[in-house]
Amino acid sequence: MTTSHAIEARGLVKVFGDNRAVDGVDLEVRTGSVYGVLGPNGAGKTTTIRMLATLLRPDGGTATVLGHDVVREPQAVRSLIGVTGQYASVDEALSATENLVLFGRLLGLSGRAARLKSAELLEEFDLTAAAKRPLKDFSGGMRRRLDLAASLIARPPLIFLDEPTTGLDPRTRLQMWDTIRRLVAEGSTVLLTTQYLDEADQLADRIAVIDRGRVVAEGTADDLKKSVGSQALQLVVPLGSLPDGVPVARAAQAAVLEVVGQEAVVTPLADGTRLTVPLDMAAAVADVLVRLRAADVEVRELTLSKPTLDEVFLALTGHGAEPQGETEPAAPTLEKVTA
């Protein structure tokens, strides 16, 4: 078995009732890399991680973690991984120190070694001052840091991070990113899931976009952005029609299609219409504006931004990144992109 891959998954399937939460996922994660699994709520990210981390038994397919089969050798896998996520958390009845000491002792450290390790990790994660405080007084960022610290006691070569920054404020999020980068610099392999395109872009060497339990695109962040455009242009035009009777929104859409060569996504607003379209170069905005003026379309608002997950999804799957918990299984027509 090759050891250049930290994770190799083939055709992983997990079914909950009628819902095929994970429906044939393949993943290959190189040792020493950061791999991002990107997708909206309910796409099957967490279920995939739980199967790889031996917390759920797959209903189909195989997966190996650092050469060990997750079903046949779960204990071997568990000794090589750290899991941090919305679920694998810490004990709220215990203080930060007590949690780390507990996990240290469970991992076979003596009481003294566990206390030393705990102090060392609290220092490393900037939690020393809060070591004895009850966990209910911890901020979201402190909780995540403690969760992460608890996964690192045995310094596992592979770390699973399930949505490490969901719900964190921007500053705390940046701190978390730094922490993750440091882990990677120290040689760990990281598999992280996220709902944020920029997070995957910032941290991951390769990204798998997952939608309704399937991988719909896989590649580097650059590959992904090429398929989406590096920028997204948003225009707001007024309601109503032009003098020739054509609705403003339709005229604007035609103009955008002509310049950009791609259909804009139309969102009705209370007092206007929003059009969103991916752009490869910011300079193309000028051409769009010129063409719109020529068509007598008034532009109320214009923003140029990084594409959101929603836009990536639109580009890759033809539908937005709405939560998918209750939706139908993926239709076969969705597999139009393989990066």
Partner: peptide
């Protein structure tokens, strides 16, 4: 949630 961590430990 902490039980999941116990289960992820060797």
């Amino acid at each position: 949630g902490v039980f999941d961590r116990f289960r992820s430990l060797p």
